[in-house]
Simulated scan of single mutants.
Amino acid sequence: MNVSDAISLYLTHKRSLGHRFLTEENVLRAFRKAVSDRPMNGIEAADVLVFLNGKGGPVTEYWAKKYHVLSGFYRFALSRGLVTQSSLPRRIPLQTAPEFVPYIYSDDELRRLFAACAAACPGRCHLEGDVMRAVLILLYGAALRLGEALSLTIADVDLSESLLQVRETKFFKSRVVAMGRDLTGVMSDYLALRRNRHSTLEASPFFCCRDGGPIPRHMMQAAFRRARDFAGIDRDGGSRRQPRLHDLRHSGVVHRVVAWYRRGDNVQDLLPKLATYLGHVDLHGTQRYLTMTPDLLREASLRFEHYAMEAHHA
C-alpha cells in the first residue's frame, strides 16, 4: 500500500474514534510530500530521519511532535499489516532548542497592540482595523482560541445576556462563555459598526472581511504580525520565538489568576471553573497556561506567606 492510502486509512480510523486530528493530518501530509507517494515498505529509516531533521537545525518541540505523530502512524500500519517493520529511528536525540515559553503581554503592550490595528490594516487590506481590534480584544478578554473567535456567527453572540456560544471547539465540545461588562461594551460598539456595513443574518460571521465574508486565519495572523511590529513588541530568540496571537489567550488567563490572588479569592476552587471556561477537558490543560510571570509569582508568594504566618500563629 502506498503512503497516501495508508495515511487516509489512519485518519479515518482516528476520526472514527472522535479525534479531530487536524495538526496530525498536516504532519502526515508533509511526510507524504517529503518521502513521495511510494509503497510503505519502500520507506527507509534514512528517509524518515531526513523528514524529522528538516533543515538540520536544532532539535525542537516540532521534531518531537513529528516523531510522536509518525509513531502512532507506524503502530497503526504495523497492526494492519501495511508494513513489515517500522522505519522510525530507534534513538531519539535530546531536544537542543529551548522549550517555547508563552509571552504574557503587559497592560501597556496590550494597549499599544490594540492601537496598532488601524496601521496594520490600511485601506487596501481586506481586513479592517476596527474589526481586527475587536477580534484581539475578544481573544484576550474571553481567552478564546483564534478559530473559536473567527467561527462565531451573529446568532452565537448574545450581547443582551453577555454570552458567547462557542461551538464544536478543539475537543468537539460546545460551551457558553460569559463576558464582562467592559468586553460586552466593546463587542456592542463593534456590532453597531458592523450593522452599517454588512448583513446581520443570524448565520453571518460575527467578524468579517470588507466583503462580508469570513476572515481566514492566515489573514488575521499576518495582520497581527504587522500590528506587533508597529507596537514595538518583541523578544530575544529569533523569529520563531516572537510573541504570538495565541499568547493573548495565555495573557488573559494569567491576568485573571493574578486578579484572583489580589482579591483574596480561593484560586484552587476557581481553577476547575476556569478550565471549563477555557474549554479544557481537565486541569492539566489549564495549568499549561499559567506561565509564572513576576506578577503571578509575587501574588502566589504573598498568598503562601499569608498562610504560613497564619499557621505559625495558630
Rank of each mutant, 00 (worst) to 15 (best):
residue 180 G to Y: 14
residue 228 R to N: 00
residue 227 A to N: 13
residue 91 R to Q: 08
residue 231 A to S: 06
residue 82 L to Q: 02
residue 167 R to D: 10
residue 312 H to K: 11
residue 212 G to Q: 06
residue 179 M to L: 15
residue 116 A to G: 14
residue 199 S to N: 12
residue 283 L to A: 14
residue 113 L to F: 01
residue 239 S to W: 13
residue 114 F to G: 09
residue 170 K to P: 15
residue 216 P to D: 04
residue 121 C to G: 06
residue 87 S to P: 15
residue 201 L to W: 11
residue 113 L to D: 00
residue 34 A to E: 11
residue 187 M to A: 05
residue 149 A to H: 07
residue 42 G to M: 01
residue 205 P to T: 02
residue 111 R to L: 09
residue 19 H to E: 10
residue 160 S to M: 08
residue 69 V to E: 05
residue 244 R to H: 10
residue 131 V to C: 15
residue 172 F to Q: 14
residue 251 S to P: 08
residue 103 Y to N: 03
residue 127 L to S: 07
residue 214 P to Y: 05
residue 44 E to N: 11
residue 83 V to M: 12
residue 203 A to P: 01
residue 219 M to R: 08
residue 21 F to Y: 15
residue 161 E to G: 12
residue 110 L to M: 10
residue 51 F to A: 01
residue 203 A to L: 00
residue 147 G to K: 14
residue 275 A to T: 12
residue 50 V to G: 07
residue 203 A to V: 03
residue 183 L to H: 02
residue 268 Q to Y: 02
residue 241 R to M: 04
residue 119 A to P: 05
residue 42 G to T: 07
residue 217 R to E: 14
residue 79 S to A: 11
residue 121 C to K: 05
residue 274 L to P: 08
residue 306 H to V: 00
residue 240 R to K: 12
residue 117 C to T: 12
residue 45 A to V: 04
residue 144 L to Y: 08
residue 118 A to C: 02
residue 215 I to P: 02
residue 231 A to M: 07
residue 145 R to Q: 03
residue 91 R to Y: 08
residue 160 S to L: 08
residue 220 M to I: 13
residue 163 L to P: 04
residue 290 L to T: 03
residue 40 M to S: 03
residue 297 L to C: 11
residue 139 L to T: 12
residue 125 C to T: 02
residue 92 I to V: 14
residue 207 F to Y: 06
residue 121 C to Y: 01
residue 202 E to Y: 08
residue 247 D to T: 10
residue 294 P to N: 00
residue 80 R to F: 08
residue 185 G to E: 07
residue 153 T to H: 10
residue 288 R to W: 06
residue 14 K to H: 07
residue 63 W to H: 11
residue 242 Q to F: 07
residue 45 A to T: 15
residue 33 K to Y: 12
residue 275 A to Q: 06
residue 17 L to N: 06
residue 22 L to R: 13
residue 234 D to H: 09
residue 98 P to E: 09
residue 6 A to M: 07
residue 286 T to W: 10
residue 287 Q to R: 15
residue 276 T to D: 09
residue 52 L to H: 13
residue 89 P to Y: 06
residue 273 K to D: 02
residue 210 R to M: 10
residue 199 S to G: 06
residue 219 M to K: 09
residue 264 G to S: 08
residue 32 R to L: 10
residue 102 P to I: 00
residue 170 K to A: 10
residue 224 F to V: 04
residue 16 S to C: 12
residue 40 M to Y: 07
residue 167 R to I: 05
residue 75 R to S: 14
residue 182 D to Q: 13
residue 200 T to Y: 01
residue 268 Q to E: 15
residue 163 L to F: 13
residue 138 L to N: 05
residue 139 L to G: 00
